[in-house]
Design a protein around this nucleic acid. Structure first.
Lengths: 190, 190
DNA sequence: CGATTTTTTGAATCATATCAACGTACGTGG
DNA sequence: CCACGTACGTTGATATGATTCAAAAAATCG
């Protein structure tokens, strides 16, 4: 399990075997079942999650009681409520497993120790967040520049395997429209 | 000019006077006039911009030839096309000054040297990007969970001074609706 | 001041949501 | 392994929020 994280880190920065062992010792493996919650609104988010296998979702409850999916995390993605994690304030989000998922968990305090011991990790996460931010801005571009139908086709072309893995109502929520609209769009051509 | 950047960095990580001098030596001050372009679609983005005074906008051209604003940068914000900057591929965006603006510019190669010489900068940018990513996800939440009218009021309450500084058609673009809609919304109450 | 840029206003149109009803699949316990 | 219940997906009719377009009014700039 840890080897997958170590391999991912080594794509970006060099770390020794000893450092890899330190990282492993500061992370806990965790198996979560489909629909199992990891964070609820009002809680302070104290954990940084790395998905080794499976899917997590970060979502919010809207005024009208519906769930709005803000982000997914799949294999080799990090997820947390970074606002709550950073400032140690109550979260406005939920984190939940979409399917049976294997995670590595790093507590905030452990992460801080790791940064102090292994400075390359600052570099690693700098790159991870830089890319996540860039991807998030691209997503905003798609949201504003494409119609909802185009958005669906674009996402479907970019991540066809992922689209197969998740329920349609979750995909609809993530893309910012209703399940009915997705159903009708799929009925048109494919 | 550099002192403002140094002060900002020191809010997050400690750096010595010598290190501050190295940072200053690797950055160029630049004054840009309103509407002056800093990046055009098709160019590779090789510069990281830090706004000390003024406003920049990152925008894309849509299929229909209109400008879609993806991000603003104001005092003490960093801006670049991080996708293009990171991978050294042609950008799909434009960067332009919204008003007369004072910038610090760091070339990609200079930034890499700085990271090698001053590891705390990795930590600084890790924090900067983590917050930018968190803010971007919050923005996606607002886009999906609020109506366009609510979005305007929310943004107007959160950043009233900024709203005064930029033309309404730019605010409308940033918030994802038309200038006409914004005009009609403002006519309602405030 | 005149010229350009930005904002306003109104009417017609369009994309997408909503609601309700029905169909299908799925997984859980008997 | 089947049957039942719940969760998920589809469909059509109607409603609505926001866009589009065009034109006029206001603000800003050289």
């Amino acid at each position: 399990m840890h080897t997958q994280l170590i391999a991912h880190i080594r794509k970006f920065v060099p770390i020794s075997e000893e450092e890899a062992a330190v990282i492993a010792s500061c992370t806990q493996v965790r198996q979560v079942k489909k629909k199992q919650p990891l964070l609820k609104e009002g809680q302070v988010c104290t954990t940084h999650y790395f998905v080794t296998k499976g899917v997590l979702r970060l979502y919010a409850l809207t005024d009208r009681g519906t769930e709005q999916i803000i982000q997914f995390a799949i294999d080799n993605w990090w997820l947390s409520d970074y606002m709550s994690f950073d400032k140690q304030t109550p979260s406005g989000f939920y984190i939940q497993a979409v399917e049976d998922t294997t995670l590595l968990c790093i507590e905030r305090s452990a992460q801080e120790q790791l940064f102090a011991q292994i400075p390359q990790l600052e570099s690693y996460f700098r790159i991870v967040f830089q890319r996540a931010y860039a991807a998030s801005l691209m997503r905003i571009q798609y949201i504003f520049c494409l119609t909802k139908e185009e958005r669906y086709h674009h996402f479907n072309n970019a991540y066809p395997e992922f689209v197969q893995r998740i329920p349609q109502y979750m995909l609809a929520s993530f893309l910012g429209f209703t399940p009915e609209f997705l159903s009708k769009t799929r009925a048109k051509k494919g």
